[in-house]
Design a protein around this nucleic acid. Structure first.
Lengths: 334, 334
DNA sequence: ACCGATTATCGAAGCGCTTCGACAGAGGCG
DNA sequence: CGCCTCTGTCGAAGCGCTTCGATAATCGGT
């Protein structure tokens, strides 16, 4: 156990200056002579001074903490969510902010509490539904917020996400270029569509529209996450659609089951059936064969979300919608 | 955007009492007449008062926030980590605390900063290695901490975890009871063992000891997480050990690959090979066939970690080691 | 050599809360 | 009835920091 915490006044005394001078050295909000600055910084180092977060928050009305609101809903792929979360934390630290983790079980009250108590300066919300109960609250809060994902009506909100519609279309276009004429989308579990989760629906819309545009035959299905169900769906698909030769899989948990089921049914990838996935690179690379895929740029999304939030905290206005363009990486499955 | 935040003095004025009286009503630290209490609570409700977290932290020297230190290392199964994290958050809220999320990229400095600035009152560390660089720092900090997992030398620390050695043994004993005479452990990726992650090694030790105790033949292998490598390992195993009929799998990401590989090699589960997994119930239940398994009681571990931390924050002494007993659920794979 | 502008620093007033000691008033006891 | 003990409430003193306005020192221009 170490001794009592060092305060700013001890630093001031040690450096032979006023408390306010130390504060200005640390914040850089007023000009300070090089000599004084050095003396102060030396004292800070020698004494091991760390500003008290509570005092700072009280005096400056800025906690330097943002909330990350992360409900963990059924059917969501947790590793991807954690990629977002990690990049939010990393980005926040670059702006000298910390991250408070809020989960689902308090519901919207958690947001209200954290905001009203000035625990946090702003909010990043993940796993946004089309009709998300947290959204009305956001407009009520004094604190700025950024959503990762789009609700049905995003007017007045700041939202960031991969352009999933475009991603879905991109997969279809790739298969079309490879000469496939009949394709299928295996999407999220049905519960995710039912809940109205934006990204799942938008991928499906992009897929469907692109199928129409390119003149292919195509069908979009939901896809559960256990092997037997995947195997059944694949069997049916192969059975009822003999012309089918291209598969788009937008379901991280099921993607390996899909490959397993194709193997089980004697289909080779990519010779008999081509597969494009929308999933993180590590999953695509680790599959057998490695999958052609559109990755979800979680790191970039998280970083942008934080950047936008920081802009809003500065009082700047920011674009409402930020859609990141998907990129397709060709591997061995198409 | 809502109006300026309500302060305690506005509540006091509204209720016709002193500021300190409001404080005592809210904290319950002094006796207050029923009548006054009611008036104050009414005013709190009417005005929508939320105490300012910074001011409270400054005056009381308690931030009511704990840090959750969660490095996301390669080879760790993220959904399981998130189960821990979620239960830590939920449990913390029950003690009226919030959770600050710290990740790896700041290293130990993040801990030091959060602790020294009084941002947090205590720490919960996850993903502990046998020789964890964060551990020496902990003994230096004034703030109490609890580890989820055990380092090599846990003396002076408070640690909670599933008794993985016992879990490994339990799986072997179950297979022995079922009459199997030759078994294998498929464990974590080799990088996890190399890093010296406690839970992987302890499971292996428990497995090995139990194999010796029960007089079975057995081998413990590490296990990578892509299908081809799993398939190769399984093939070798079946080839070189014709008597092998029991498998213990301690690798959430590989467990489905193991089943796929057995299927590929024409082995039926459980008729030809019995499989016991150490993994969350949802994975075990969703597999085909549903797996006999020992689950990792993430919710319980997280809850205990928080409970112990809160005890320490109260100044109580707590046991150094808390090992939760594993329980095996029999399903269709053995 | 003097004046106004500029630069560097200081002191003090809060930020909103908790907590300590003080103190009225009520109640119990001899 | 006086004294003492509780109860319930109040006022004030911080907690450690930021920020505002004031002031002293410095400087260039004439």
């Amino acid at each position: 156990m170490s001794e009592r915490a060092v305060t700013i006044s001890e630093v001031a005394r040690h450096a032979g200056v006023a408390v306010s001078t130390v504060s200005y050295v640390l914040s850089g909000k007023r000009a300070i002579s090089a000599d004084t600055r050095r003396r102060v910084l030396d004292s800070v180092r020698v004494l091991g001074y760390h500003p008290n977060a509570g005092a700072r928050a009280l005096a400056s009305k800025r906690a330097n903490v943002i909330a990350l609101v992360l409900p963990l809903r059924a059917g969501m792929h947790v590793p991807v969510l954690m990629q977002f979360a990690t990049s939010v934390v990393t980005a926040a630290r670059q702006y000298d902010h910390d991250v408070l983790l809020l989960t689902a079980d308090e519901g919207s009250d958690g947001l209200r509490r954290a905001a009203a108590s000035a625990l946090v300066d702003g909010l990043v919300l993940m796993d946004v539904e089309l009709h998300d109960s947290r959204v009305p609250l956001l407009k009520d809060l004094a604190e700025p917020s950024v959503l990762i994902g789009f609700p049905a009506d995003s007017a007045g909100l700041t939202c960031v996400d991969l352009d999933f519609a475009r991603a879905g279309a991109l997969c279809v276009e790739h298969l079309a270029e490879r000469g496939h004429t009949e394709v299928a989308l295996l999407g999220a579990p049905s519960v995710v569509y039912d809940r109205g989760t934006g990204f799942a629906r938008r991928t499906r819309e992009g897929f469907t529209a692109a199928v129409a545009d390119t003149g292919l035959k195509g069908v979009a299905l939901s896809c559960e996450e256990n092997f037997d169900q995947v195997s059944t769906v694949i069997a049916e698909l192969l059975d009822t659609r003999p012309g089918l030769s291209g598969l788009v899989v937008h379901n991280e948990a099921a993607v390996n089951h899909v490959l397993g089921a194709l193997r089980q049914h004697g289909r080779r990838v990519p010779d008999d059936v081509a597969v494009v996935a929308i999933c993180p690179d590590d999953i695509a690379e680790r599959s057998s064969p490695p999958l052609t895929s559109v990755l979800i740029p979680a790191e970039e999304v998280g970083r942008q979300a934080v950047r936008l939030l920081m802009e809003k905290l500065e009082g700047h206005t920011v674009p409402e919608d930020t859609l990141l363009q998907p990129r397709l990486t060709v591997r061995d499955s198409t």
